[in-house]
Design a protein around this nucleic acid. Structure first.
Lengths: 149, 149
DNA sequence: GCATAAAGTTAAGCCCGCTTAACTAAAAAG
DNA sequence: CTTTTTAGTTAAGCGGGCTTAACTTTATGC
């Protein structure tokens, strides 16, 4: 029996509790905006990766070009996404969050952040320091992994 | 300017990268099983919270009793969920994961765990130790928060 | 230049989730 | 014991996501 739990177990327990909470939070928030999950996910994608084309969306979510086009169209009509012509390729479109889309996503993040801030407010300063350091390590490792994959 | 990033920023960056990755992973996995997201989410709920009734499902996902009943019915027909009579209240049902449902959810977690294991394999033993300790702190805080809420 | 491939749109049709409404059955309240 | 509330199911109907198929427009390969 080890004194502190092995890394894999810590990660798993954290993942269980964190995932359950944050998935619920996101779906709840998405619903409150009136957007469907697929629509909302596209906004998230644009937030995370920046501008892209329609086929990038269809690849990311593993749906047909037609489906992506229709979903994007609804977001354009709702003024969440701007769909401009690509100057380099006149077949392609450049999708981007509008200010409205951007602020909606930010509001979602802020809700999530509030939860996490409450979490940290329940920890003492020593714990806070340890956690901050560890998360920086994890984030760096995760980003490195995404890039090489 | 502080030497190490403040806790809130570490949490936020970690959340951004982790959420994006794991949400995608889960939706991808759910789709690969042939289940819809609502159906899959119910299995997740049963995994996380254990047995419950139909109205617990409708409350959790903020849908009508009728919708919950229909969704559950599909899961019962697919042999993912067992729907038994509640011995204490013959109006109510007791929903539970079947072995098939349980192993499906576990397969999903294992996929997620694999990603996290690869993450830890990229860190040295000192980093591993720090991370394990920090996540244990976080998990404890999160569980405490859920209970008092 | 001409054929082919690629980016995106549109329309028809299917399945699914969800709601409301009407219903059954059992527990709780009085 | 009767009334009301609670748990759950069923059916009709709406709207949304997704697919295939047909099409337009622009870029690419030979």
């Amino acid at each position: 029996m080890t004194k502190s739990p092995p890394i894999s177990q810590s990660l798993r327990e954290w993942m269980d509790v964190f995932m359950h909470r944050s998935m619920h939070g996101w779906t709840h928030f998405a619903k409150s905006t009136g957007l469907s999950m697929p629509q909302f996910s596209i906004l998230m994608q644009l937030h995370h990766k920046g501008a892209c084309g329609v086929s990038d969306v269809s690849e990311r979510f593993d749906i047909s070009n037609a489906a992506a086009s229709q979903l994007v169209d609804k977001l354009v009509q709702g003024d969440y996404v701007e769909r401009a012509e690509d100057p380099n390729d006149r077949r392609a479109k450049v999708l981007q969050l509008t200010p409205k889309g951007k602020s909606l996503i930010e509001a979602g993040f802020n809700e999530r952040y509030r939860w996490m801030d409450e979490l940290t407010s329940r920890m003492n300063s020593e714990e806070n320091k340890k956690v901050a350091e560890a998360l920086a390590i994890l984030t760096k490792a995760a980003q490195a992994m995404e890039e090489t994959k």
